[in-house]
Amino acid sequence: MNSSNPSTGFSGRGVASGWQLAMKIKYFAYLRDTTHTAAEHYSQPAATIGDLLEVLCQRYGPGFSRWIRTPEGGISTIAIILINGKDIRDGAWVDTPLSPEDEICIFPPVAGG
């Protein structure tokens, strides 16, 4: 059975969504303040990472999008967005295609040393 919410495509708290393939999305740092979860699954179609980020910004609102978007509305170049551990800035950026089995990690701009 599919445990995801059919209207949104999200299934929460890291629980896999039955037989239907679903991307795993992992959130870090400030983003968890808004998502209230470290990971969830998403089973609706999203052709590119740009499409998915648009969905996430809509779903979680300004508390999420402020870390991911630039003031001009684009995607921040210092947010760290990984698909299966590969940084989208090293590839096709927001046009990077997604597959249902992908794992996506999203970090706001943070650093250390």
Partner: peptide, 24 residues
């Protein structure tokens, strides 16, 4: 700067654990 202005104060340098792990 998002890192110097807020990020390091909120999470310290240890925020890197998940980043480095996520890139293997």
């Amino acid at each position: 700067h998002p890192v110097g202005g807020t990020g390091l104060k909120a999470y310290g340098t240890d925020v890197l654990v998940n980043i480095l792990n996520s890139v293997g």
